[in-house]
């Protein structure tokens, strides 16, 4: 196991004394290049840079590596120049990630708060079990998007794959495109808005009409991405709550017919 001393990071953060632009906003420090670093070193470097009070950092050459920016508790903007691998931004609090590429499985898994933007496509399990914050996928998301979602908001401007929102417990999903088969199977709570076609609903999921408040919320959430909610025929999927309680079969009634 390599211990990565914070002192080693002086080279990475040496530009922190660079004068700020005239508008007073803090400038980016020197980018963090992943080449030659282990995943552990990259994540520790990100923590160290955040500790210096930098407002943002650009990460170069992520090359699809797994577990980047995992377990961070900083609102420093981390911009990934390229595609990332599995679990990016997972287990984080106050995350602020901008991924300029695609991401692998389970982006933002168990996110507590903050925002993750994926400019490309997300693979399977996007926002799995995420408890808070917002995960925005500007492309498509793969299978099981929002699986076991526990309170976060997942916005997908493209399509989502099969088995999405499986066992969702709380939170919100907004999908402009199509949803794959078995959407919201065994959902407990929460709501899913789908602008395109739904291949099929899972057990105990049902479509219900949107309220005026829903449309306003969609406009607000999608407005950030210059998308008009009215351009889509949004459907709202919620739990039918038919599986909440055990229902004994009335055999006497059935036999009577």
């Amino acid at each position: 196991m390599t211990d990565f001393a914070v002192a080693d990071l002086t080279t990475l953060t040496s530009t922190s004394s660079t004068p700020t632009p005239s508008d007073g906003s803090p400038v980016d420090c020197q980018p963090l290049d992943c080449n030659g670093l282990t995943t552990r070193e990259i994540n520790q470097a990100l923590k160290a840079i955040a500790a210096t009070g930098q407002a943002s950092v650009t990460v170069l050459n992520p090359t699809g590596r797994h577990n980047l920016a995992v377990g961070l508790e900083t609102s420093m903007l981390i911009r990934f120049e390229g595609s990332v691998g599995y679990y990016c931004g997972g287990l984080s609090d106050h995350a602020n990630l901008d991924i300029q590429g695609n991401c692998g499985w389970s982006v933002g898994e168990n996110l507590m708060s903050g925002q993750i933007i994926v400019r490309g496509d997300a693979s399977a399990n996007a926002a799995a079990t995420a408890r808070g914050g917002k995960i925005c996928v500007l492309g498509n998301a793969g299978a099981r998007a929002g699986i076991s979602l526990k309170g976060a908001t997942l916005i997908v401007l493209g399509n989502i794959g099969a088995g999405s929102a499986f066992m969702m417990q709380q939170g919100r999903m907004i999908v402009c495109g199509d949803a794959g088969a078995n959407l919201a199977d065994s959902i407990y709570e929460g709501e899913i808005f789908v602008g395109g076609a739904i291949a099929s609903l899972g057990a105990d999921a049902q479509v219900e009409p949107l309220t005026e408040a829903d449309w306003q919320m969609l406009d607000r959430e999608l407005g950030d991405w210059n998308v008009k909610a009215q351009d889509y025929a949004f459907k709202k999927v919620v739990c039918a709550k038919q599986l909440y309680n055990f229902k004994p079969r009335d055999f006497a009634q059935e036999n009577a017919i």
Binding site: T63, G64, G82, N102, A143, A162, G180
Partner: peptide
């Protein structure tokens, strides 16, 4: 990424379920 002349701008695709 190990492919010679890998085009990083190319659209990648994942097969769907089934």
């Amino acid at each position: 990424l190990n492919l010679p002349q890998f085009d990083s701008t190319a659209k990648l695709r994942e097969p769907g379920a089934g």
